[in-house]
Amino acid sequence: MIIDWRELVRTSLPALALAALLGAIFWLQPRAMSYQGLNLLLNLSIPIVFATLAQMFVLTVGDLDLGIGGFVTFVACVTVTWLAEAPLVGVLILVAAIGLYAAVGALIELRNLPAIVVTLGMSFVWFGLAVIVLPSPGGRTPEWLIAAVRLRPPGIPLAILAAVGIGLVGHLLLMRTSFGVVLRGAGGNPRAITRAGWSMLQIRMTLYALAGLMGVFAGLTLAGITTSADANIALRYTLLSIAGAILGGSQFTGGRVSPIGAVLGALVMTLAASFLAFLRLNPDWQIGVQGAILILVLALRAVLDRLAGER
């Protein structure tokens, strides 16, 4: 049997990018190759990984979520206020927020609306709610949450364990269960899915609810790391999550998504940001390095596709 090496390279691009980046860091700064070093490098990755997975769930049906940054901000603000002061109310707010996410999915499906505009509107809604909940920077994350993200498991830093765990759960859910197949099929050929008797409404609502759930986890862990919050805390998450998902091999259309790739993509994005700071280079180029890596990976993918097309 012939191994399709192009496909192999294509799927392992995010992993290669991560390895190359880590290699460069270790080579330039051998001390990074330690528990403490990795902890420092990947410190901020957990919420970004969750947010990227949220974006990926929405991408599965060919939609784009411009509201995830606002949502994560809102969750973080609820976490440092309601969840700390009145946990029950806090939990109810978060559950209701996930419900609202599913409702947005339903609205998009039922009225056949462009997801990009609806989620843009939701972005304003979430940022607005965040300001209402937490008018000025501050608040205090519940201690249990701070303790949770500061866990120091023996041997392997928490961020790495979390990434592996999230990636595996996402992979099992979307790629391995019989229902995950239907969810992805809905992105690949909605007509075939409808013809086989499945409901696009249920599928879209499920995916949006999953995105909401991931967004909640992102907000909780972000608040845990920062211990307080403000209404701009996750401003960049929208673009970062799209970049991470795309870098990880998810495509904009056709239901081609990869949870493990999304996790790797998010890690690359995080590392690219901490890379310069860690090497005491000009941190102004943090975002630029993220963009450059994204362009590089997309370019490599385009080259591979072109080679494949010439067969």
Partner: peptide, 13 residues
């Protein structure tokens, strides 16, 4: 400003 943003979002939708 929170309500303002909220209304802007609702308006867009």
């Amino acid at each position: 400003s929170g309500v303002r943003q909220l209304l802007t979002g609702v308006l867009i939708i």
